[in-house]
Computed example of a mutant assay.
Amino acid sequence: MTVEGQSVQYTELAKFEDYGSAQALVDKLSDAGFEVRRLRIVGNDLHSVEQVTGRLTVGKAALLGAGSGAWFGVLIGLFFGLFSPGASWISVLLAGLLIGAGWGAIFGAVAHSMTRGRRDFTSVKVFEAASYTVMVDAAHSAEAARLMGPS
């Protein structure tokens, strides 16, 4: 890594099983006045985890699409409301919301139907690490270790 035109070497300061502990160390060093831009939190042995959150039906896909479409419709309604002199803000927003929700529902249902049952669930995908290492700029490792205190 290059910082201000110089090559920076990092060394391990501490290793933790969870991200919260690594974050707590960085917070501790920050509170002690350490220049935290000299630190890194490195996730080791990354893997993806997909948590299945529920079954997805055509009706649910339409409902999710309607929600997304409604927000988009409100945005478009705001845009038209700004550039339409004499138009009622409420009617323009309401029209945008209803039209957006309707089209969103249609697109959501059609998109789900086109999968032909290959993806009949909703999920949230995250990346997790087996452990976390707090790394410090080697030139500042002694100061960081002193401020960190005994392990």
Rank of each mutant, 00 (worst) to 15 (best):
T2V: 10
V3E: 05
G5P: 01
V8T: 08
Q9M: 09
Y10D: 05
Y10N: 04
A14W: 06
K15S: 14
Y19C: 00
G20V: 15
S21Q: 14
A22W: 01
Q23E: 13
Q23N: 13
V26C: 00
V26S: 00
D27Q: 14
D27T: 14
L29E: 01
L29K: 04
S30G: 15
D31Y: 10
D31T: 12
D31V: 12
E35I: 09
V36A: 04
I41K: 00
I41M: 05
I41T: 11
V42R: 01
D45V: 15
H47D: 06
H47F: 08
S48H: 14
V49W: 07
V49L: 08
V52W: 02
G54W: 04
G54Y: 02
V58I: 14
A61I: 05
L64F: 09
L64P: 00
G65T: 09
G67V: 15
S68M: 13
S68V: 15
S68N: 10
G69W: 04
A70R: 01
F72I: 15
L75P: 02
F79A: 12
F80K: 02
G81Y: 07
F83T: 09
F83G: 08
F83V: 09
P85S: 10
A87M: 09
S88M: 06
V92T: 15
L93R: 03
L94I: 11
A95P: 00
A95E: 02
L98Q: 10
L98K: 08
L98M: 15
G100P: 01
A101I: 09
G102F: 10
G104E: 02
G104A: 05
A105V: 07
I106K: 00
G108V: 10
A109G: 08
A111D: 02
H112R: 03
H112V: 03
H112L: 01
S113P: 00
T115D: 05
T115A: 07
T115M: 06
G117V: 11
R119G: 03
D120H: 05
D120C: 02
V124Q: 11
V124E: 11
F127M: 14
F127R: 13
E128Q: 14
A130C: 07
A130M: 06
Y132C: 00
Y132F: 14
M135T: 05
M135R: 13
V136F: 01
A138M: 04
A139Y: 12
A139M: 08
S141C: 06
S141Q: 11
A144T: 11
A145R: 14
R146E: 13
M148E: 07
M148F: 04
G149F: 12
G149V: 10
G149L: 06
S151K: 12
